[in-house]
Amino acid sequence: MASFISHLTIDCSDAYSLSEWWKPVLGYDDVPGDPNLPGHDECMIADPAGEGTNVLFIEVPESKSVKNRLHLDLRPRADLRDTEIERVIAHGATVVADRRGQYGPGTGWVVLADPEGNEFCILRSPAEVDKQSTPAGE
């Protein structure tokens, strides 16, 4: 019998603030019936459509000191990759590395960091991937 991922946990210094920052990035909300409040040392957010993995933010005493060994790869639901990157940067993310075009025109991703320095990537949207894989002339 195999296991499944219940939720993804992100260590942080302020669980409430970081969960609030991530909600509009992912389009997530508080878990129904379990609101996150200032001062909570654990805050869970969930995809309201029930399609994505829940994310739990837990306060820990130590600060982030090295590159994440695990990170989120985000794919825009509707917008293009570059539009989504601009949106998330305007929301307060910082650019860590720009890998757009690394494997040719129209490819790649951008590595960003949230306000506590946790890295995540924004990939091309499903429409961009489909367009890239469609043979010319079709």
Rank of each mutant, 00 (worst) to 15 (best):
K131S: 07
A97F: 08
A136S: 11
P38N: 10
N36F: 04
L18D: 06
D130V: 15
Y28L: 07
N118G: 02
V95I: 15
I58T: 06
S19G: 15
E116S: 05
V55C: 02
S3P: 00
D11V: 02
G104L: 03
T9C: 00
V111W: 02
S133Q: 06
P105H: 05
V95C: 15
D79K: 14
P76G: 12
N36G: 15
D98Q: 10
L72K: 02
L70S: 01
M1H: 07
L112M: 14
K67I: 10
V88W: 02
T83W: 07
V60N: 00
A113W: 07
Q102M: 06
Y28D: 06
G137N: 04
E59F: 03
T94M: 13
A136D: 07
E86V: 13
S63R: 12
E119D: 09
I58C: 09
D34E: 12
W22E: 08
V31T: 13
A46L: 03
Q102L: 03
V110Q: 05
V25W: 03
L112C: 11
E51C: 09
S6F: 00
D11Q: 05
A90N: 14
R100N: 08
V95G: 09
V111M: 15
S6V: 01
D114A: 12
S65R: 09
H71I: 05
R77L: 15
G104S: 03
A49P: 01
F120N: 10
L70I: 14
C121R: 03
A113V: 10
D14F: 08
R69E: 00
S17L: 14
G52D: 14
R77Q: 15
A15Y: 08
H91N: 10
A90Q: 13
V111R: 10
W109V: 04
S125L: 10
C12F: 07
S133Y: 05
D79G: 09
E138C: 04
G52T: 05
H91T: 12
A93K: 13
C43S: 09
I10T: 09
E128R: 02
V110M: 13
G92I: 14
D82R: 07
A78R: 09
M44Y: 06
L18Y: 08
T9A: 13
I89M: 14
S17V: 05
Q132H: 03
V25E: 06
N68L: 04
A78Q: 11
R87C: 14
G108I: 05
V96Y: 11
K23G: 04
D14M: 02
A49M: 14
S133L: 09
A127C: 02
E42T: 04
V95Y: 09
A136W: 00
L80V: 10
D34R: 07
C121H: 06
D11R: 10
V110S: 10
